[in-house]
Design a protein around this nucleic acid. Structure first.
Lengths: 373, 373
DNA sequence: TCGACTGCTGAATCATTCG
DNA sequence: CCGAATGATTCAGCAGTCG
């Protein structure tokens, strides 16, 4: 896995780490991550073993058998062993993550508390926990507990002060112009999407593409590098390709690696225009108040008022406002006059139009309509 | 807090621990729990400090100030200090919990992973994690993350093999005859239910009664003792009283204790009949197949069939079934004939009624209707 | 082509009692 | 504590078939 390579950068010869982009690395996830350079990954999505600790067989009321997760990779000697494994792979993940990158981990109640606890101990800063509500969970056949109808994802930045990517507008647009909440509903992976071989599912816990789609759209930019250390059937890679992100997958099992490679080869990337639209579907460009003055929407010297005419201010040529001794931007002056910590100047300040007061935000809208294609 | 008291039990004089039932203990929760006898509590509900670690002030887009949780009781020096506190109170909780009791803890992503990890380390066995989906969460005003729209509850028994109470039928009835799932939706506590004093909320994180109602209905029996070590405004006590459960509350803050006491004094217990209905709305006592034969609902010698008449069996006088050489209970013979590991004989076996096949479960229902008051 | 119906299946810590 | 006997239990989505 040659991740070190001589490259020629603008005439200079240097030894720089090169990432094995759009590649599946077969092997142990900790060893494979150790071979990757520090601070090189924009986003990590991890779907580690859940340590289910299932007992005997389970049958449905009709007598049929439940095909449970009995794979060797989900077996650990003890809770402590699982804890140790978790901290080890998370520490490597942290090393290779860029300072402004972020990490997602999915789990169930069997393991997610150990995972979350380790994430906090390692210095990551949890941004959200997200609930995947399953539209069609398996019932509790014995009637002994509540139907286990969700899984939990943790989303964390590298530290309390670390920056991270969050495409707020994309999420809001995706959610019908309401803020995207922390509970997401998807059906479990099935139908055509579910990879099968000889009629049997290839992987017991294949994740739905819709889940990865939302994660990548929310927390990466186009061209970002996404790493999945428990690649399985490669859902992360397939979605990354579709969304114009680069990806690296790691998995130990040859069967999974082969299935994932074939799947990703067959996946079609979206064309550029579709990608742009999704990235910021309704993102309005920022408008500086000064632009409106500059372009004649509001003349310098115009008087602005709050909605009840308790305050008045004069527009300056540079887009500033003045009110007696106080001066500043529309937001800052509004806050000062109200003695408030903050103020949205666009909706607080009004101009006079045929005797009536109208918010200056109306002018911004007019400007946007006139200048947007 | 005299929890030890001489009592006279059926003529014998003995020193036995007596629980301070239906009482609020004012003081530190760990100290107060230490004074309670071991294995004396049926259910613990805990809403511990979340260790929110909030930074500066937060304002809404209109400039108004968000009244956040800034109370002293939510401050800890470090994550390690919080972890230590968590393990201490959980250890005491474990000591006083009956072997067939269970514990609920609610939290957010700030603390729930530490809580869950400690719960597992202490030997509790997680039964479910439950998501409280808030119908009306506070938006993320800054647009920097997903709207934090849920909280997480952990429900655990005392150990892997420990018994616990789960009123399956009550939950299923409550959920319109579908199994109750692990995601519950309630509005946050507000309106008339929210305790206020001089126009200000008494407690920053008062939980909705609907949440406690479901918890107590699901995991306690009538007369069970419910302990809440972080009693706050006493939601747990108020709901316990309504549902005919005994309760003990612990809180350090006099303001909360007073508010909770007044609230619980004003709460009305439900009358007995309503309680019975809710506790087990459709709970049917076990019926042995033999009872039906004994009571003439099915004559010995009657032929039973599976729904497609592929198998037939003869009813024995003792409630056994015979089919050729094979014989056994309705469940066992059904399983044997299908070559299945198990079988619900009540729905698998049918009797002939005017030419049509009807499941013998219909007879059980008839029997139940005739014998239940 | 479409609706009705049948059959199958999914990260599940899935029983209780008695001897 | 263990083994054997007895007892009790499922929901939504998708694929395939039939009319």
């Amino acid at each position: 896995m040659g991740v070190l390579e001589k490259v020629n950068v603008r005439g200079r010869t240097a030894v720089e780490p090169v990432l094995p982009l759009d590649t599946i690395l077969r092997g142990d996830c900790i060893a494979a991550m150790k071979a990757l350079p520090a601070k090189s990954i924009d986003l990590i999505f991890a779907d580690p073993p859940y340590n289910l600790q299932l007992g005997g067989d389970l049958n449905r009321p009709d007598g049929s058998h439940v095909d449970a997760v009995t794979d060797e990779w989900d077996k650990f000697d003890s809770l402590a062993a699982y804890d140790k494994f978790t901290r080890e792979w998370l520490a490597e993940a942290r090393r290779i993550l860029k300072d402004d990158g972020s990490i997602w981990v999915i789990g169930s109640y069997h393991n997610i508390f150990k995972v979350g606890s380790a994430i906090q101990d390692l210095g990551f800063w949890i941004l959200n926990d997200i609930i995947w509500r399953k539209a069609n969970p398996m019932p509790n056949f014995k009637g002994t507990r509540f139907t286990n109808a969700h899984e939990t994802l943790i989303w964390a930045s590298k530290g309390e002060k670390a920056r991270y990517t969050f495409n707020y507008r994309s999420m809001k647009t995706l959610n019908d112009e309401l803020q995207m909440r922390s509970d997401w509903e998807f059906p479990i992976c099935g139908g055509q999407e579910r990879l099968k071989k000889d009629g049997y599912k290839v992987h017991p816990t294949q994740k739905p593409e819709a889940l990865l789609y939302r994660i990548l759209l929310a927390s990466t930019k186009k061209g970002d590098v996404v790493l999945d250390p428990f690649f399985g059937t490669g859902t992360t890679g397939a979605v990354a390709k579709r969304l114009g992100r680069r990806w690296i997958g790691i998995d130990r099992e040859g069967v999974y690696v082969d299935a994932a490679q074939a799947r990703i080869d067959a996946a079609l990337p979206l064309d550029e225009s579709a990608l742009t639209t999704m990235q910021a579907p309704k993102a309005a460009p920022r408008v500086a108040f000064g632009q409106l003055v500059e372009n004649g929407y509001l003349a310098p010297g115009t008087l602005l008022f709050d909605s009840k005419r308790r305050h008045r201010a004069v527009v300056g040529a540079d887009g500033s406002l003045k009110c007696g001794d106080a001066a500043g931007s529309i937001h800052k002056l509004g806050a000062t006059l109200q003695n408030a910590p903050s103020c949205n100047g666009w909706t607080w300040w009004h101009y006079e139009d045929e005797g009536a007061l109208k918010p200056i935000d109306a002018l911004r809208q007019t400007w946007l309509l006139a200048t947007q294609p």
